[in-house]
């Protein structure tokens, strides 16, 4: 693939108004969508607002929707598209636009603040330090590869077009945060009530869109949300457990 002129269509605007604007940007082999946006910034639109940091798929800052699909623009190669294709870049739809491709992602930070902190038990080792088997932390480590790009949050239909669900649903990113803590061998908190209540795990109807867009290939639905749902169901809805709880409560 040699150098060519890319037709780039970028949403420009702010919280009041905005629309798609067409640009032609010279691009070369190996470039990613973020490179094209940077070139646009350097040559034609110096005030184009784009959020980015590492440009290596590790920080999760440069999320946007490319031809309608949520992606990290730094990891989206232009050779994914034909040179004649128009590449359209729009801001993450689930979050309010600040300007151009930059959105207000504070929803995610608010939800994160509601998660009770990690609370480890006493160390098992005679040296005063913890012991954990690798096999016991493998699944926790999968969740901890999350780079907080919020692509799973933007694609999740529970909140994507339903502003009213945001107060009652934490979203896939936070579900794996809960899962990571719930499945941590050392953690002593029980977050199941919280999951059922404030985090709203029941809203998820496992369409797996989040898993599909995850740039870290975390099996969000299968490995985190479904096991969490099972745990919640076991305590909250299992008839025998409920009966037992009722009897115990009566005794108390």
């Amino acid at each position: 693939m040699a150098a060519y002129d890319l037709s780039l269509r970028v949403w420009r605007g702010d919280s009041d108004s905005g629309d798609l604007q067409d640009y032609t940007v010279g691009v070369e082999e190996g470039m990613v969508v973020l490179d094209a946006l940077h070139r646009l910034q350097q040559t034609q639109a110096p005030d184009l607002a784009v959020r980015w940091n590492c440009k290596a798929g590790k920080c999760g800052s440069c999320s946007a929707e490319v031809n309608g699909r949520p992606r990290l623009t730094c990891m989206t190669r232009l050779n994914l598209f034909a040179p004649t294709d128009t590449v359209t870049v729009t801001p993450l739809r689930t979050f309010p636009v600040i300007r151009d491709l930059v959105t207000d992602v504070s929803y995610n930070y608010e939800k994160a603040a509601q998660v009770p902190a990690f609370a480890p038990g006493a160390p098992a080792g005679d040296d005063g330090h913890h012991r954990m088997k690798q096999s016991d932390v493998d699944r926790v480590q999968e969740f901890r590869t999350c780079i907080e790009c919020f692509l799973c949050q933007t694609v999740c239909h529970v909140i994507r077009d339903h502003e009213e669900n945001k107060p009652v649903f934490a979203g896939p990113r936070l579900m794996i945060r809960y899962a990571e803590l719930e499945m941590h061998p050392l953690d002593t908190h029980d977050r199941r009530d919280l999951l059922r209540g404030r985090a709203g795990i029941g809203y998820c109807n496992i369409t797996k869109c989040c898993t599909e867009v995850c740039p870290e290939h975390i099996s969000i639905t299968d490995n985190a949300i479904i096991p969490l749902k099972e745990r919640v169901v076991d305590t909250a809805y299992d008839p025998i457990t409920r009966l037992g709880n009722r009897i115990l409560r009566r005794r108390r």
Partner: peptide, 10 residues
């Protein structure tokens, strides 16, 4: 930047 995006993640 946003919290959690600092260069340390690299």
């Amino acid at each position: 930047s946003l919290l959690g995006k600092a260069h340390t993640v690299m």
